[in-house]
């Protein structure tokens, strides 16, 4: 009886040793070759990959590069391949993974070094290409109160506006990996968001100009990798199908 109880306590406090393989490469350094390096550390309760990576940098690999800002799944800077699948390091508990973890930078984006990639450049060019701002014919009168918006509509827009531009949906998309110019789910979701916005005066014909091509909605092959990895659980499957129907019915 006593021995059993002791076992139970022992089991609960037994910590796992994690082996984390990290794909390391510094494109700035002409000597650098992409290689996996392996680090071991003791798992702590409630440990996220963010905590684990900081510990590795502090104790074992001072030159390790990776991005973090918010540590709370809001800024979208910590996307990486976790055991081959895109995800946010700050939102991933090590306890949800096996004792051997492989980390690699998100593909498709420009590599800055190790796990750090330039999603900013991608987000900027997407914004410019898709004109992700409210379009109005006339100058808004800034001295007047804004038109009221139907709360349900505002809620719908907010739902799609939760995209943090982490790039996970792009890295998870087989089409984007094959075809560099494909807008990807984040871009199509943005179009759906502005299409909902009553202040945006663009018509479906206007949106067609932006995404009505094989680099736009019609390039999507409905593999739904995007939908299945999006850390904000945006309804990408629904939005892709919705925009496809709308764009296909433009006269």
């Amino acid at each position: 009886m006593q021995a059993n109880a002791r076992n139970l306590i022992m089991n609960e406090t037994t910590t796992r040793t994690l082996t984390i393989q990290i794909l390391r490469h510094n494109p700035q350094d002409p000597e650098s070759e992409p290689r996996f390096e392996s680090y071991q550390l003791d798992e702590a309760p409630g440990m996220t990959l963010f905590i684990a990576l900081n510990q590795i940098r502090d104790e074992q690999a001072p030159s390790l590069q990776f991005d973090f800002v918010c540590r709370a799944g809001i800024c979208g800077s910590c996307g990486m391949l976790i055991n081959g699948r895109p995800g946010l390091a700050c939102r991933t508990l090590t306890s949800k993974l096996g004792p051997e973890i492989t980390l690699a930078p998100l593909p498709v984006f420009k590599l800055i070094g190790d796990l750090s990639v330039d999603t900013g450049a991608w987000a900027r060019q997407m914004g410019e290409r898709l004109e992700t701002w409210v379009h109005q014919e006339s100058e808004p009168d800034i001295d007047r109160l804004e038109e009221r918006m139907d709360p349900d509509r505002a809620e719908e827009i907010y739902e799609l506006d939760r995209c943090i531009e982490c790039g996970c949906c792009i890295a998870a998309c087989g089409t984007a990996r094959m075809r560099k110019d494909f807008v990807g789910a984040a871009g199509i979701n943005k179009m759906a968001r502005f299409r909902l916005d009553p202040r945006d005066e663009r018509s479906d014909e206007d949106f067609y100009e932006l995404v009505g091509s094989d680099d736009g909605v019609f390039g999507c092959m409905t593999l739904l990798g995007c939908n299945d990895v999006c850390p904000k659980e945006l309804p990408l499957q629904t939005q892709l199908a919705f925009m496809r129907r709308k764009m296909a019915s433009v006269k």
Binding site: L81, G84, R85, A172, G174, R177, L223, G225, D228
Partner: peptide, 10 residues
């Protein structure tokens, strides 16, 4: 990509 993702629809 398909090998890494291990994702059914892909």
């Amino acid at each position: 990509h398909a090998g890494e993702m291990k994702h059914g629809d892909t």
